[in-house]
């Protein structure tokens, strides 16, 4: 399989700060948008913290890159899966997360959500559908 569009999923499993994995994963995601592939993101384990709302890094000296997730819709990346069990295990709900949206060009540019709450089993099925899964 070397021709055509592939399904790429970027799995985010680590907290946004503490290690550089989240930031450098996001950099790959943004580059991947230029290749016209079928790109999705998944957030599970501590990765759900990457898209929590109102992140503040003042005092820790870390670069706050969370606003970049809100730009994903502009890159036509609008399939963002959040694992339900990972939220619950951390006392979080979708209300604690940023509202990630995109404008649907097939529906008069209506603003629609990019986020899908999925169970661990559903996420496993989604992973199974992918051609390329890059996890960090």
């Amino acid at each position: 399989m070397s021709e055509g569009i592939k399904k790429f999923m970027f799995m985010n499993t680590k907290a946004p700060y503490g290690t550089v994995y989240a930031l450098e994963s996001l950099e790959v995601v943004l580059i991947s948008a230029a290749f016209d592939q079928d790109v999705s993101l998944a957030f599970c384990d501590d990765g759900v913290f990457q898209i929590t709302d109102n992140q503040k890094t003042d005092g820790s000296g870390m670069k706050n890159f969370s606003a970049a997730y809100k730009a994903l819709g502009d890159y036509d990346i609008n399939k963002i899966y959040v694992e339900k069990e990972s939220l619950e295990e951390r006392g979080l709900t979708m209300d604690n997360l940023m509202k990630l949206t995109y404008e649907d060009e097939d529906d008069d540019w209506a603003e629609k959500t990019s986020m899908y709450l999925v169970t661990r089993a559903e996420l496993a099925d989604l992973i199974d559908e992918q051609d390329v899964t890059i996890s960090s």
């Binding site: 592939k6 580059i31 051609d131 390329v132 890059i134 996890s135 960090s136």
Partner: peptide
Amino acid sequence: SGLGQLVEGGIQADRLLTFG
């Protein structure tokens, strides 16, 4: 080179394997 080489590697190969 740039990260595009990683994405292109994923497109062109039959399998992309991550070691980490």
